[in-house]
């Protein structure tokens, strides 16, 4: 009676392994392309010359693409760290007995807040914080906070009552239950929230160049304003690849925390 179950299990595991192997190849390839383009966009200059013969400078040269990439990643990393720290802390607070009263309010704030267009949030940060790095970080952190809070609450909510009862019944303290049972079980959903937040922030950081923050959006916007399509393509390619690679990395991270439920 066990045999068919076991063998179908094995078969699905096999296709999973195969899919994962081809996924690794794709991800590896994309990372190589991303790094190569960041470091060696200059090598493509003849190509851009051929594509856009009417342009005198078809390669963005006001800053190195490596600098732009690092600035972009820096923006996203700093803001995501802030959002993740505050977001998980807030999510934990409103799911503990002390903060449970705040849960409905925080949940609806997170839901309503996400209907705000990221570009509008970025624009509104300008009168509050001026131009440059600061408003972009503020807008990105604030906006990125919401999916993290939402998913932390949702993830902790998926932990079954019986599992919690078993944990208490086995003599775990509150901290032990949180660290050993609740957080590991909620982690997949929390990471999904961080993934959403980071992907949105990669996109919004691009627009950050309109408020004066250096990012991969800088050549893109410069190209749009100066009617230089080559700049647009260079910026768009890099930021697009960055987003896809990040998303794939998060997908793998999420998979680590699924326990067959």
């Amino acid at each position: 009676m066990n045999a068919p179950v076991a063998s179908s299990h094995r078969a699905s595991r096999l296709t999973q392994v195969r899919a994962r192997a081809s996924g690794n190849l794709v991800l590896g390839g994309l990372i190589i392309v991303l790094v190569a383009l960041t470091l060696g966009m200059g090598a493509l200059e003849p190509l851009f010359h051929a594509l856009f013969p009417e342009l005198r400078n078809p390669l963005y040269a006001r800053d190195s693409f490596l600098n732009l990439m690092l600035a972009h990643i820096g923006l996203v990393l700093v803001s995501s760290l802030i959002s993740v720290t505050i977001g998980i802390a807030a999510g934990l607070f409103v799911t503990r007995p002390v903060g449970r009263e705040f849960e409905p309010m925080v949940s609806s704030l997170a839901a309503i807040g996400q209907t705000f267009p990221p570009a509008a949030v970025l624009a509104i940060a300008v009168p509050l914080a001026g131009f440059g790095f600061a408003p972009t970080i503020i807008a990105l952190s604030l906006y990125g906070l919401l999916p993290v809070i939402q998913n932390t609450i949702a993830g902790l909510g998926t932990v079954p009552q019986t599992t919690l009862e078993a944990a208490r019944g086995n003599g775990m303290s509150r901290t032990q239950i949180l660290m050993r049972v609740e957080l590991p079980l909620a982690m997949r959903v929390i990471i999904a929230g961080i993934r959403v937040s980071v992907i949105i922030n990669i996109g919004t950081a691009t627009i950050g160049s309109t408020v004066g923050a250096k990012s991969l959006g800088t050549p893109l916007i410069a190209g749009l304003v100066g009617n230089n399509l080559a700049y647009v393509i260079q910026g768009a390619l890099l930021v697009g690849l960055l987003a896809i690679v990040t998303d794939l990395l998060f997908e793998r991270l999420e998979r680590r925390y699924s326990f067959g439920g």
Binding site: P160, A166, G169, G171, M172, S173, Y257, G261
Partner: peptide
């Protein structure tokens, strides 16, 4: 309370096994 519970075994209907 935690010490007490570690002195007492506890098994429930839905097993309450930790899925992770």
């Amino acid at each position: 309370v935690e010490q007490l519970r570690r002195r007492i075994g506890y098994a429930i209907q839905s097993t309450g096994l930790f899925p992770h």
